[in-house]
């Protein structure tokens, strides 16, 4: 059974269709990359999967639960890192994680200790979040998303603004969790797709433009093939119609 099942999803803001008939399924063990220019509809799709925005039409099912009919059942099974990893700046990471744990009904410190260990936050647990570096703040957001060991992870630009070492660490963490979860992440960094994803969708103007997966050392999107490191040319060709 698909952990995430999206059917003909549409979101209109007035006359503008931010998401215009997107559909796909994600199985356990998959890391699905959302690629696309800014404004393509990646974040809006994620906001509908996590139950933040209601779709104009279409359906989202997570672990068999319809997000419109059973929003709480869906929200319990999803860990979500919104774009920019928003957190409460006046709290410490520990207080913030304790708050999320209480809302999620998690008892004791085990879940917090595990998430803190995985995101390596131990050194800054008692410092207010607004005094932390961007990398640490991103990790606080990640710790919040994996706190309840969810089956489904939705990560909106998880490595945006991080330095190369921090990017490497976050990708390592995602790979380590991939085996028993269904993960969707959005990114502008095409090498990230090669580094962590097992499938990818190129999204533009609210539609799925191409769907791809690794094929040996290359990536194959339908008839198009990208050799290692050649994803950016393929991306331009699909999103702008340029010749490779």
């Amino acid at each position: 059974m698909a952990m995430i099942l999206i059917e003909n999803l549409v979101k209109r803001f007035g006359a503008f269709a931010a998401v215009d008939g997107i559909g796909f399924a994600v199985e356990r063990g998959t890391v699905l990359g959302f690629l696309g220019p800014n404004g393509a509809g990646k974040s809006t799709t994620m906001k509908m999967i996590t139950g933040f925005l209601p779709p104009t039409s279409g359906r989202v099912r997570v672990c068999g639960h319809d997000v419109q009919a059973e929003p709480l059942a869906v929200k319990r099974r999803i860990g979500y890192l919104p774009e920019g990893a928003p957190t409460y700046p006046d709290m410490t990471p520990l207080a913030f994680l304790e708050f999320v744990a209480r809302v999620r009904g998690l008892k004791g410190r085990a879940a917090i200790d595990r998430a803190v260990g995985r995101t390596d936050l131990g050194a800054v647990l008692h410092q207010p979040i607004d005094t932390l570096s961007k990398g640490y703040r991103r990790r606080v957001g990640l710790a919040q998303a994996i706190l309840h060991d969810p089956d489904v992870l939705i990560l909106d630009e998880p490595t945006d603004g991080l330095d190369p070492n921090q990017k490497h660490e976050v990708r390592r963490l995602i790979r380590a969790m991939a085996a028993d979860k269904a993960i969707i992440l959005s990114t502008h960094i095409l090498e990230e797709v090669e580094a962590v994803c097992t499938r990818a969708l190129i999204i533009g103007r609210g539609k799925v433009l191409a769907e791809g997966a690794p094929d040996g050392a290359s990536w194959r999107f339908g008839d198009l093939e990208a050799p290692p490191g050649g994803l950016d040319a393929l991306f331009r060709r699909v999103t702008l119609g340029e010749a490779v």
């Binding site: 906001k47 920019g84 957190t87 409460y88």
Partner: peptide, 14 residues
């Protein structure tokens, strides 16, 4: 303003 509303409203609470 801070965007935390997205975090708050995707937690499993009414």
């Amino acid at each position: 303003r801070a965007g935390t509303i997205e975090l708050l409203l995707t937690l499993p609470v009414d």
